[in-house]
Design a protein around this nucleic acid. Structure first.
Lengths: 358, 358
DNA sequence: CCTAAAAGTCGAATCGATTCGATCGAATCG
DNA sequence: CGATTCGATCGAATCGATTCGACTTTTAGG
């Protein structure tokens, strides 16, 4: 006789609904009714089934089998950038996610986080999901969207370029940036430099050139830049490699540690964290803010770290953005035709902007 | 005749493998082999199937059906605290998550994030998952663990109290804290106060009392406190409501803004963010660090914000913690018996600790 | 007391794949 | 040249539930 098959140590295989039904002396269908709650079951029967379940230590219907039959897995995917740290270090993405989770509350859906890898198709095609939310990727999304479209599931894209069959949740990035720029113009600033978000997945920190701008795959960066350009068509600047204060500091040093006549009187940062870094650089260089340098941010993060300054910034409704995305998902899953959403930012004037010097 | 059924606008139902097979003139089994890659298929046949798939815009096998048959969903759940912002604002959790995602890399698993709600059983029983990682919850986990155990899936708990059948990934919180305390003792400090992490889900900021300590459900907070108490059995302090610099600042003010003879000469914070807040409070009160006050942190977050200070702290291997958790999951799924892991922290001496005054 | 409706239960089909074993022709080997 | 193996393909069972329609038993209504 062969030696016993090398059974793993777990001696208890997962019991099935059939086992529970058998033990309770009812049919599988009746047992199913007890757990799904759809259909009338006599109290005595229900208790018998539940007792059997508890005796077998049955934990409820297998989610996989249930999903197959129901055609719903109860999972919504959130597709983010390559590395999770990058994606979640940004407070805006975090707030967004919180908005999504909050809106899920009643509907009981799980959040599947998928960091976009080299070949997105594989991951996106293989994971169970009822819908997908594409979140602030600097990536080119067409490949991912194609993979998802083949699955015939609702796709929601946040601040991305418009794509056929994709529900858009957008921010008035361009308009808001223009309003911010107008504030600076009205304060008399003529020499304005910009610090942009990462332009693409390469995340290269460097001087902005027309070529690099044109090649940018980050819709958010481009839109905000376009708004600025409506007021300051020739503004130069740098692109950051990520939305962190460290990056802002580094770029701030590049822009500010120069002869005075070449120094901008205002810096427009495409995020608050970048603005914070610029503020630090200015402090370190002994520049008065806003006396010698005005700084404008974007996002409206609550930053305690800027004290005693209050950042002038464009406050975006990040949590609402998440809620809108979740609402769109549920609408689409309910068979409705969800309408695209455009959220607006509000200009909050703090203490980091003032009249241009001289 | 009745009006047409209210069919949703989507005219294209998802094609099935059977449809593809039919169009390619092969059996379903052969078509399956083409996609799963298990088994020999003639090149000509393979191409015919792929062509049919592409004509039907077939996106590959349905993950749900595949999961049911295979018995694996390819999803690993990460169970976190109630609110995602709370969970992910902590840089340690983020680093942990990144470690997990990184270790997944090859194995291609999805990360299902489940914020623990009021009745955990429902969510945990209903979502598809092959394994679960319980992450730094201040919560009592027994209910969740029971629900998961019934599913017969591997359970990994990070820095939690030992539970039967749960793979533990632990940190030497107690020992490391003791070593930190010894440093302070050797520097001559006698009056030491502690700022703890949130003690439980209630997250109440307030003075530490024996009752509150005893009732704490946060293993991490308790372990670190125990280590401190080995050296300073009577140290008093406050509990924070969360690991943020804002909380640290608030508690720091309570502890430091008092008559000098009642002021501690050293503060032990249970996280670097708390320590940062304490540092801010000290600066605002005009206290010399480390001349008049020494500050000890925990975590080893790279904080640019403490400049020009470098925080003395216990550096924990957070990314490795994530990798260890992922490794344990895969080992368990492979049928092996994963061994519990105990990671150690290293004391990094910075500029925020010095000899006790006088 | 009889009939119609409601409640309770069950058998069987179904969701969309994977996979085992069988089949059959072609290639390999002694 | 017969026996054996290998490659390619297919039919059918299976994964674990849900759900529709049919059937039986109560209950309610007149």
């Amino acid at each position: 006789m062969k030696p016993e098959a090398s059974a793993p140590s777990d001696a208890s295989p997962r019991p099935t609904l059939a086992a529970v039904a058998a033990r309770a002396g009812v049919s599988v269908s009746t047992a199913s009714l007890v757990f799904s709650g759809a259909g009338p079951v006599a109290t005595a029967t229900r208790e018998r089934v539940l007792a059997a379940a508890s005796e077998l230590d049955y934990g409820g219907p297998d989610p996989t089998a249930r999903s197959l039959r129901r055609g719903r897995s109860g999972v919504v995917a959130v597709v983010t950038e390559d590395r999770l740290v990058d994606a979640f270090r940004d407070p805006m993405n975090l707030a967004f996610l919180d908005g999504v989770a909050q809106a899920f509350g009643d509907e009981r859906a799980g959040l599947l986080v998928i960091p976009l890898a080299a070949e997105p198709e594989t991951d996106l095609a293989a994971s169970p999901m009822d819908a997908a939310i594409l979140l602030g990727c600097g990536l080119d999304l067409t490949a991912s969207v194609d993979a998802l479209r083949r699955r015939r599931i609702p796709i929601v894209a946040v601040e991305a370029d418009a794509l056929e069959g994709v529900i858009a949740i957008d921010l008035d990035n361009r308009d808001a940036s223009r309003r911010g720029a107008e504030l600076l113009r009205d304060l008399g600033h003529r020499d304005v430099a910009v610090v942009t978000l990462a332009l693409d997945v390469a995340r290269i920190r460097g001087v902005l050139t027309p070529e690099r701008e044109a090649a940018s795959t980050s819709a958010t960066a481009r839109q905000r830049l376009a708004g600025l350009r409506e007021v300051y068509p020739d503004a130069g600047g740098w692109s950051a490699s990520g939305s962190t204060s460290g990056d802002g500091y580094a770029v701030g040093m590049e822009l500010l540690n120069v002869p005075e006549h070449r120094r901008p009187t205002a810096i427009v940062a495409q995020s608050d964290l970048l603005a914070l870094g610029v503020l630090r650089a200015a402090e370190e260089l002994g520049l008065q803010v806003p006396g010698e340098l005005s700084i404008l941010g974007f996002d409206g993060v609550r930053l305690e770290d800027t004290a005693p300054h209050v950042l002038t910034t464009l406050v975006q409704p990040a949590v609402e953005k998440g809620e809108a995305a979740a609402a769109a998902v549920f609408a689409a899953l309910a068979g409705e035709q969800p309408t695209p959403v455009l959220l607006t930012c509000t200009l909050r004037i703090g203490t980091t902007t003032g009249p241009a010097p001289r």
